[in-house]
Design a protein around this nucleic acid. Sequence first.
DNA 1: ATGGCCGTGAAACACGGA
Length: 260
Amino acid sequence: MKIATFNINGINKRLDNLLEWLGETEPDVVCLQELKATDAQFPRSAVEGAGYGAVWRGQSAWNGVAILARGAEPVLTRQELPGDPSDTQARYIEAAVNGILIASLYAPNGNPQPGPKFTYKLAWMKRLEAHAGELLSAGVPIVLAGDYNVVPEPRDIYPTRSYDDNALVQPQSRVAFAGLLAQGWVDAIREILPGETVYTFWDYRRNRWQRNAGLRLDHFLLSPKVARFLADAGVDSNTRGRPNASDHAPTWIELNGWPE
DNA sequence: ATGGCCGTGAAACACGGA
């Protein structure tokens, strides 16, 4: 069973890119972020035509998350991250597929920092940690996939000083991500590729793709009951080099022997 | 020190992104 996460940066702007990648790689589950589409603008028939059932939560212009399942209908369990009823940003959706609870999340960017956006980022990560802890205590198979907007360690970014003041690399952001790992989640990409440099995002500016000046921002956190089945992981980085590409590349994990 | 490249919404440029 292959599960992928892809910050699509506008699902309608990049629908052809998405369909091409789906056809080539045939993931069983896809977590999408940055739909930049309202609920009504979600390309339901195109996604269905590609053989995927879907649940989504859209928003005008920004954010927006979805979960796609090949030949199945995801069973929606949540459309918001608990802990702040006043937060209306579409950054979290959760559904059950093939006996695994899947979350597609889009953490706040947090720039500029310091400032209200960074405060919101850290508060959102606290809420995520609280919810993730609740989920873990249930003892069920869970995958938290998405754009965490955190560079976990210095080796997860190309050698540069230009990001020193960026929210993605601040100690508070890294502590938030490390706090999730300390709960017992497994960083699947790091687990499978422990010694390798892995990037999932390359800024559009300054030829960062051509220079491979990337960042690792898109992560899979696996609960122990899923981590036992983890067999492979990778980044479809060729997708980043195509015409009209998102600035993120699809990232994926493979579970062997699941469903049991 | 700055802007650099994009998408959306709106109809020029503001804003968010990372």
